[in-house]
Design a protein around this nucleic acid. Structure first.
Lengths: 204, 204
DNA sequence: AAAATATTTAACAAAAATGTTAATCAAAAA
DNA sequence: TTTTTGATTAACATTTTTGTTAAATATTTT
């Protein structure tokens, strides 16, 4: 519906991303996607050839979103603590916007060993291994964080930020939280995560 | 194939669980499940009526597995630290055995607001809210852990243990790890997680 | 062993989903 | 304005998947 001015192809793509990343309806049919985009189903084939290729296109977008996210903390010239701080904000915000993005990527990766997609991952790998890891090691040398491998540090960071959102449905059921209570809980986590990852003296 | 002696119904169920929880093939057809169980597809309908009901049965089993897991640390009469320690072992082991269990539950919850299933969750809720939360608060009073709400403490624990396994495929790609390297990484996490969650003085 | 019941199978039917085509409509180029 | 090209549609065809049935086989009961 959004706009006839907008390119149909992009509009279909964005609708699919909404359905997959925001709503987590991974089994949505081409008909459902077309309906929600307000277009004829045949247009999906016209622009993407097949359901599978639309799926791939969306997956690639998803991985690129992750890449941008990770890159954005590496790029800017700010202190390590500030980097982590902004990263938490970013991941939290994106996770609230697209709670099913990671789950989608995980299940999709499992179904198809996409050749196309591997490039996107290489970019993330470079960013993480070549750019971020040395910075973590430098911080350990400075004594601002506990000795730990860069990999484990990254995993701690991602775990603490991402898991609660990935398992949103589960947490809401177990802890009996409505939408707003859940949102609050997630936002409260920033300070908690910073306290865990960075030494006290580095914070004060 | 496993065994003709084994009850067919259970065998189908176990095969489905293997496909869903271990292999993460959430879109497996009834034909694929039947093939892998070595039975005629019609038997799935004979025992479960429909694909959907098999799906539900498996989901219920999955949630019960989570429940047992959580309950097992509450039940035994051991120190708080020991509880956490055993919990990490348990979650780690189960996560390595059934890496897609949580993801399955999350996506399934999203698709159907199962009425049957809600009971299973209530049991988990009781365990967590009524049994575990007071213990966390007691530990805070004792000064063995940092002041934090019981909910956030639980979420930290679950995040640090579960996320790396849930996002296994992702982590393996980003950090370029083969099966064994991944396994090692996960096992190394126990000490890291304990250090994060419990104060140093409580550990030594 | 015969009868009754439960399990398993193959063959069929129905439904759901994807993919294709040719005709229509709209926009841009000639 | 006609021609040409690109976008959109409806109608159809194919494939995939699920669900049903009645017959065949095995198992249990009498």
């Amino acid at each position: 519906m959004a706009g006839k001015d907008i390119q149909t192809e992009i509009h279909i793509r964005e609708t699919a991303k909404k359905i997959f990343f925001k709503e987590g309806r991974f089994n949505a049919t081409t008909q459902e996607i077309a309906n929600e985009a307000g277009v004829n189903r045949a247009l999906i084939h016209y622009y993407f050839r097949s359901r599978d290729l639309l799926f791939e296109a969306v997956l690639k977008d998803g991985i690129d979103m992750m890449h941008v996210k990770i890159q954005s903390i590496m790029a800017t010239d700010i202190s390590f603590r500030e980097k982590i701080s902004r990263f938490i904000d970013l991941v939290t915000q994106e996770a609230l916007d697209f709670p099913y993005l990671e789950t989608f990527i995980i299940t999709a990766l499992n179904e198809k060993e996409q050749s196309l997609i591997l490039n996107s991952f290489d970019k993330i790998k470079t960013e993480v291994v070549d750019v971020f890891a040395p910075k973590v090691e430098a911080e350990i040398a400075l004594g601002t964080i506990e000795p730990i491998t860069a990999t484990q540090f990254m995993i701690n960071l991602l775990s603490l930020c991402t898991y609660p959102v990935v398992s949103k449905a589960l947490i809401q059921k177990v802890f009996d939280l409505n939408e707003e209570a859940f949102r609050q809980l997630i936002l409260e986590r920033k300070e908690i995560i910073l306290n865990i990852l960075l030494k006290k003296k580095a914070i004060e």
